[in-house]
Nucleic acid binder design. Structure first.
Lengths: 109, 109
DNA sequence: AATAAGTATCGTAATATTGCGATATAAAAT
DNA sequence: ATTTTATATCGCAATATTACGATACTTATT
């Protein structure tokens, strides 16, 4: 039907998948890398650098913001976006725990 | 258009987003957790445990397999799926590097 | 007040994802 | 050989995502 059945999964599984989904796009990865490098990001800059239209970038920024991964504060005409430290930490922890749970033992296959 | 413009991004950005996309679904996270715990997974088990139809689970397994995150070997009637250590390591490295690139400095906002 | 600059939102088209019933396939047991 | 068991694939419907032009909004400058 095209609708994820969130009810049957744990809150952790849903939360992690939501965060991952927000990051799982090359444009959004590029945006995040750009924000991290400059530590002071303005959308207008991105429009010139990435090869995407202004509307598209604004939409990607909105998705990252909705997921809580970035936060934006209005600074005059432009908007300054930066990483939301809390969510970033949460992602590092949740994802780190998940990835580390596999110890690489090859009992099967 | 609905088509991601992969051409304008780096190989690293595309690769990382592809891997993340494969994991960014609660059912697939649940499947991976289940595989990791048992270290010997048979699809039939999952059908009973998760609340999804057999066809749906088979499809999720296929996506994980296509992304190279799991590998399956036929064992008689059933198929044994397990983590692909190489891809898992790659994911840990790529993602770890990406997440660690943010140092948490709050110069702005 | 009018204009300019930077972003956000709307509407829309193209494509992708999610989920499932039905059916196919493949190996094991009878 | 037929039936059973386990998994994969097909086809479809519902929904989500991606991208962008056009337009609205919001603040700064003139």
């Amino acid at each position: 039907m095209g609708l994820t059945k969130s009810e049957i999964f744990t809150d952790e599984q849903n939360q992690l998948s939501t965060l991952l989904k927000a990051i799982a796009h090359p444009a959004r990865i590029a945006i995040l890398q750009r924000i991290i490098i400059s530590n002071t990001c303005i959308c207008g800059d991105l429009v010139g650098e990435l090869g995407l239209a202004q509307a598209t970038i604004s939409q990607h920024l909105k998705e990252l913001k909705t997921a809580g991964i970035i936060q934006g504060t209005i600074e005059g005409v432009s908007v300054c976006y930066c990483i939301n430290p809390k969510t970033w930490k949460l992602l590092e922890e949740e994802l780190g725990g998940f990835l580390a749970s596999y110890k690489g033992e090859t009992t099967c296959c």
